[in-house]
Design a binder for these strands. Structure first.
Lengths: 164, 164
DNA sequence: AATGAAATGTTATAATGTACCAATTATTTC
DNA sequence: GAAATAATTGGTACATTATAACATTTCATT
């Protein structure tokens, strides 16, 4: 029921293509939704997409500064808020960090597989899981607003190369 | 597949009984596992159980101080770490807060329904959900260490009394 | 009592996030 | 195009959450 090809990109996939695709989609989505993908927001999104790992807000801040931007914490948090509200990134609650959304467009909350060794994150958006949780909650009279599902463990690669 | 009677306790259930039961179980579990439920740890656990709402570490700190204990942040965090490691409380990641474990004994990670209005938390420990997540992850070659499932929404009570 | 391990006390600081208000830039309206 | 309005950004200060590091005390066992 998973609607993506391979949530764990290989180590040497064409990551520039990832970034470019994400930026292109972001541009399209913002145009559609009436959001303004300003240069600063775009730059933060690009920084988030540098790796398939969640990035902390202050790490982004540092990278912005390294890039010559005079930024303060609110600069980053504002950009993150914008990107979150347009479904372009997700926040990983268990890490206080942010990661690019694999299937942007409609704001949603996916399921995340977080490797405890290499920190890579894979997003699932598995509708079976979503519905299962929704059903279990409804059964108890609970109206679901938002699901946070984060799974920690070993990704396929780390599982092979290391056995701790 | 839920193995508990009613995860949302009524407004005027016998909460002293809840607290006493939790403390008694904690005592038994610590005895069994060789953990020392010192007076301070016990007191923090009791404070966590004051309500069926997650409590922040600094709120606990304040309550400890109100109770005449000279405490600093590490005091609280150490107690919380102990209680977490023995499966007596859970941390709600999306709230940076802690809540009593409904089914202590064996360390585990349940599913949590968090009411966005009254802040009450219900713990599920639904094995169907657990296995579903485990299966989805395994299918991708991911070895699960820990599941974080937190559902925000309206609890049955708030759903009735308020329609926002 | 002597020893080592576990728990606690204490200070300082790290890491994450927000409130607030001023200045600027973009968008709309006339 | 000029004025009014809204959205974005700049920047300071501060709030909240969490931990590092080291001294002291208490506990468990000889």
């Amino acid at each position: 029921m998973s609607n993506q090809p391979s949530p764990f990109p290989s180590e040497r996939h064409d990551h520039d293509a990832c970034i470019n695709a994400a930026l292109a989609q972001a541009k399209a989505i913002c145009a559609e939704q009436g959001g303004r993908l300003t240069p600063q927001r775009r730059q933060v999104l690009e920084l988030v997409w540098q790796e398939h790992k969640p990035v902390g807000a202050y790490e982004l801040l540092e990278r912005l500064r390294e890039a010559g931007v005079k930024a303060a914490p609110p600069t980053v948090y504002r950009a993150l808020d914008f990107l979150l509200s347009h479904g372009l990134i997700h926040r990983i609650e268990s890490l206080n960090a942010y990661t690019g959304c694999a299937t942007p467009g409609i704001p949603h909350h996916g399921q995340f597989l977080v490797c405890s060794q290499c920190q890579h994150v894979a997003e699932l958006d598995d509708s079976a899981i979503h519905h299962q949780l929704d059903a279990s909650a409804r059964e108890l009279g609970f109206v679901v607003e938002r699901q946070t599902v984060e799974i920690r463990g070993l990704c396929p690669l780390c599982r092979e190369t290391d056995n701790e």
